[in-house]
């Protein structure tokens, strides 16, 4: 029975893979239905799906924020400017 259910409702390895596919590509209607049924029955994959979406949001925000880039220290700034200027002179 368990094996039959697994075949119908996907193993967790495939279900979690489809969760990612759903984020980056589109799932077919059948895939959507199978994933919906699986996450309805599997609390762990349901949690994984929630976490994966949260991670997606965090990573999207992290890489597109422009307000908080870490400022380099003053001595680092000066040294880097000098290094670049010297390299430019050689070109």
């Amino acid at each position: 029975m368990k094996r039959v259910l697994k075949k119908i409702f996907l193993p967790c390895t495939i279900a979690t893979e489809m969760i990612e596919k759903d984020i980056y590509f589109k799932l077919s209607a059948l895939e959507k239905l199978r994933l919906f049924l699986h996450t309805g029955l599997c609390g762990m994959c349901h949690r994984y799906q929630k976490h994966s979406r949260l991670l997606h949001r965090i990573l999207t925000e992290l890489h597109h924020e422009h307000e908080h880039p870490q400022a380099p220290k003053e001595e680092e700034q000066a040294a880097l400017k000098e290094k670049i200027t010297n390299r430019l002179e050689k070109n």
């Binding site: 880039p69 870490q70 400017k81 430019l88």
Partner: peptide, 21 residues
């Protein structure tokens, strides 16, 4: 060269911060 040297002074900090980020 002179223009780029000026840009080095003006924009290095912001560019480094961005690249590090």
């Amino acid at each position: 060269h002179a223009i780029i040297r000026e840009w080095v002074q003006l924009y290095t900090n912001g560019m480094y911060a961005w690249a590090y980020h």
